[in-house]
Design a protein around this nucleic acid. Structure first.
Lengths: 138, 138
DNA sequence: CAGCATCCGGAAGGATACTG
DNA sequence: CAGTATCCTTCCGGATGCTG
């Protein structure tokens, strides 16, 4: 393997999760196993190509597990590996900081969440989190 | 301001610290105020153009403060703003995960640290951290 | 449904020279 | 020393069509 040289250890982290969509994908996976079609719906702007590419890289780095069901039509699921789960606290922190930042910038965080996010069925954790915060603020 | 739409809150975080060099710069700044020339030395691979660009964006987002001394030759320092300091726990976690990852991948973490990192004078915190871990492992 | 191959435009980022 | 401006190359990533 070609050893890479780093000037600071965070560069090693960025090499793994620094891809354009990787943190977003991983954040969704912290909420549980997801099918390819689930991920597509959760990330309407990602292209098929990028989704597969980023998932492959995460798989190669041992961050996510790819579960293939041998059936027709095909079914593939992705979930955090044990090693990938060590990123969960970081991913949660990144999400929480984002929520705070959105509030700081826009006041009402719902103003910047797309409808598909609020209407989705299988990943209501975020919405629940936001609802809780909303209650705290009243 | 043009409101951006997000599908998950981490996207807001990435818009602020997702730039190619931003996390690296911020990690260095968690160790204290730095002159432009310091940052250049700490990041030998970054170009002048990118350094300035990333710093400007971080400044615009209220993450870093730019301190200009009116003197000749010019002297400029950068440091985390109060708001930027709210990222410190995340940045520390990212660094720590990177160290663990380096150990997992290469065994000896010193094998992948460039010499300029080990020889530098003003940012020995990382080295100290590594030394401590080394001791723990023996 | 999940994924691959191909083409292609545009943004990202490097190199260089110049300014105060 | 710190920063700007310009040019130029690279390659990321989108769009499309096809396969099992």
């Amino acid at each position: 393997m070609g050893k890479k040289l780093y000037n600071i250890s965070v560069e090693a982290t960025l090499e793994v999760i620094g891809g354009k969509w990787k943190c977003v994908i991983l954040c969704h996976l912290t909420h549980g196993k997801k099918r390819t079609s689930d991920l597509k719906r959760l990330m309407p702007r990602i292209t098929q190509k990028m989704l597969t590419q980023q998932l492959r890289e995460l798989e190669d780095d041992g961050i996510v597990k790819r579960i293939v069901y041998n059936q027709v039509p095909p079914k593939v699921e992705y979930e955090l590996s044990d090693y990938g789960s060590s990123l969960t606290p970081i991913l949660d922190s990144l999400c929480m900081w984002g929520e705070t930042h959105i509030i700081k910038e826009y006041g009402d965080k719902f103003a910047v969440l797309e409808e598909n996010v609020l209407n989705r069925r299988d990943d209501e954790v975020l919405v629940d989190e936001l609802m809780e915060k909303e209650v705290e603020m009243t």
